[in-house]
């Protein structure tokens, strides 16, 4: 049985990080007051420690933890691109450089986007011209290379019946329960009883199984009575008194 799920306050989760040691709520407070530099806080390490501590918690608590960590990641992302926690931008030379590169790329690619639009206006789909596409060499020359008697020879070969497939590799051994029942009846009529081992001697597993079914069938019909003194011993089939 698995251990019961713990219900706890995720804000009180104790953390041991290189940069900070204490409960999670204190860490969040220090981050918001900017007493801890969020850019230097390794979020990956924080998530790993938090998840280790939270193992076995109930789903609502784990959900609250995930929400807290996501908020922290969002705040860090905003600060990294020069935006403050309220969504306002702050000066960030790196973000400006990224933006300038992106703008330069968009401006450089814009002519090709417009050329694509120009191509679309000339695309031959709707109301477009159509070209003759018949190859010059087909089909006349290809057929003319063969004489009628050659074609007749090809057809003659196609009309020859293929050899009968060999079935020698297949198991052709067949056992008929009706025949075994008839044989057992004959033996019982002659001697009054037969041994199962005598009947099946030299036979394979299939013959053994079918003979047993034949014996049971005779017993079901009331023509025979089966006796097996010891488990896994020989079965003696006796002719039933009524038949006798």
């Amino acid at each position: 049985m698995s251990a019961p799920l713990r219900v706890a306050d995720p804000l009180r989760l104790p953390l041991e990080l290189e940069l900070f040691e204490g409960p999670l709520d204190l860490l969040l407070t220090l981050v918001l007051r900017e007493e801890i530099e969020l850019a230097e806080l390794p979020l990956r390490e924080l998530v790993a420690v938090t998840l280790d501590e939270g193992n076995g918690w109930d789903p609502p608590t784990v959900g609250e933890l995930v929400l807290l960590l996501c908020s922290l990641a969002e705040i860090k992302a905003r600060r990294l691109v020069g935006e403050d926690d309220d969504g306002e931008f702050g000066p960030d030379p790196d973000a400006e450089l990224v933006r300038e590169r992106l703008a330069a790329q968009l401006i450089a690619f814009a002519p090709f986007q417009r050329a694509g639009v120009w191509l679309r206006s000339r695309d031959g789909i709707d109301g477009a011209v159509r070209y003759r596409r018949a190859p010059l060499d087909f089909p006349g020359r290809a057929l003319a290379r063969h004489q009628p008697d050659e074609l007749a020879e090809f057809l003659r070969r196609l009309m020859i019946a293929p050899p009968t497939p060999s079935l020698r590799h297949m198991n052709r051994h067949r056992v008929n329960v009706g025949e075994i029942v008839a044989e057992l009846r004959g033996r019982l009529k002659r001697s009054g009883q037969v041994s199962f081992e005598d009947v099946t001697i030299g036979g394979d597993r299939l013959a053994h199984g079918m003979t047993l079914i034949a014996c049971l069938e005779l017993a079901r019909r009331g023509e025979a009575r089966l006796a097996q003194p010891v488990p896994f011993g020989d079965i003696t089939v006796h002719r039933a008194a009524a038949v006798r």
Binding site: V81, G82, E83, E88, F89, G90, P91, D92, P93, A95, E96, V98, R99, L102, A103, L106, I107, A110, P111, F112, R114, A115, W118
Partner: peptide
């Protein structure tokens, strides 16, 4: 000629403005 498709100065500035509006620019709103 590919130059026929190039952005004008105003159009290039419009691209930069769109980026700023999308939250990628730091300078003007600072």
């Amino acid at each position: 000629a590919i130059t026929e498709f190039e952005l004008t100065g105003d159009e290039a500035e419009a691209v930069r403005r769109r980026l700023r509006d999308a939250g990628h620019l730091a300078d003007e709103l600072a």
